[in-house]
Design a protein around this nucleic acid. Structure first.
Lengths: 197, 197
DNA sequence: CTGCTATCGTACCGATCGGTTCGATCTGAG
DNA sequence: CTCAGATCGAACCGATCGGTACGATAGCAG
């Protein structure tokens, strides 16, 4: 076994440490708001190490965003799973989870959407698109369970609400509790879409 | 009259020309994606002139975003006014206007929201907030006319839909016609909110 | 004509950026 | 102990950035 595992020289560990440390800094200051040198000193790593792992600043950004998307997706899925079997409860759990996130001190909007807006032509936009696709899949599973006639359309309406309330919560101080309003709207759409026996 | 009006040396004209030319470039390439020198050559103006008018790149950006917000707000208000007196028609007109915008070739999301995401701490976020405030005012006027019990809450739900469908249309290729889905959702919310006599 | 002002074109500044290179150092495998 | 690979620290590179300075020019008021 030529590669040491778990040691201080473990490349996987170094890579994970870079991602974990760089993530909040890039989220807080923006992709273009912080240089590679500063990221390196924050992580406690040399530039050579960072470039050997990620090849370029772009590569680092992609890795950070991918890790973020996976983390957020898992977090939201767990919130849904903890809400029981009722689709309405699951849907409410999504927006309640968002409510808590929006109220956190360091909340600055969705890191993926922000990145897609910042480097619009680049790979960040693709990462953001895949992120929304994962989120749509989660919402579609809820709509499927609810047995509505067109679960795909309803899930996409929910996706618009989820995305919109996060942006509004971030950028419009005149709308607090945007997630709560979106939750009510989503539940109304669910009720209206359900076949009335 | 020491200031020439309408001549090629008219400062107001120069200022407007700089804003008009810089606006699509900053929108397309991002606030940090284009330098002041390139903007100057695109406008056909010297750096000294640009800096005398706006003081800094930040000042130029603020002026451009402010002009953009006013233009977009006027455009949407006119779409509403052209839709007649029925609140439902006015609401549908908002999302239909958005549909057409989203389908335009150079569509890259809302310039104000993108700017707020790019320079998150700075004045751009305030401009984006004021932009959403203007949009909320328009939606609130529709909700008022509809005579719903809580027009402020309904208008804010519509604001979430408007914002969300624009972001989704930009960043999620898997959801085409996001504005049409949002339109249906908004009309459903309106119908549900109306008192049933 | 005489100013005044807006503008141009260019050169220039210091700072920062992303990225590369290299010798020294440390760690763990064998 | 020896060796290979991972890392460090710092110097270094060319390019670009936002912003400034200056002499020349052009249009208008008086």
């Amino acid at each position: 076994m030529p590669v040491p595992k778990g040691s201080t020289l473990d490349p996987d560990r170094t890579r994970a440490a870079i991602i974990d440390t760089a993530m909040p800094i890039l989220y807080e200051r923006g992709l273009d708001g912080v240089g590679v040198a500063e990221l390196c000193t924050a992580v406690g790593v040399s530039k050579e190490t960072l470039y050997r792992h990620f090849g370029s600043k772009e590569g680092l950004i992609e890795a950070v965003l991918e890790a973020r998307s996976e983390r957020v997706t898992r977090w939201l899925r767990e919130a849904v799973e903890a809400a029981g079997d009722d689709p309405a409860d699951q849907l409410a759990a999504v927006f309640d989870a968002l409510s808590g996130w929006h109220a956190e001190p360091g909340f600055r909007g969705c890191a993926l959407l922000n990145a897609g807006a910042q480097h619009h032509g680049g790979p960040e936009l693709d990462v953001a698109g895949r992120h929304l696709e994962r989120r749509l899949a989660l919402l579609t599973s809820i709509a499927d369970r609810a047995g509505v006639p067109d679960p795909g359309a309803l899930a996409r309406q929910w996706l618009v609400l989820v995305t919109g309330c996060t942006v509004v919560a971030d950028q419009h101080p005149g709308t607090p509790y945007a997630a709560r309003l979106a939750r009510d709207a989503a539940l109304t759409l669910l009720t209206t879409a359900r076949p009335t026996p």
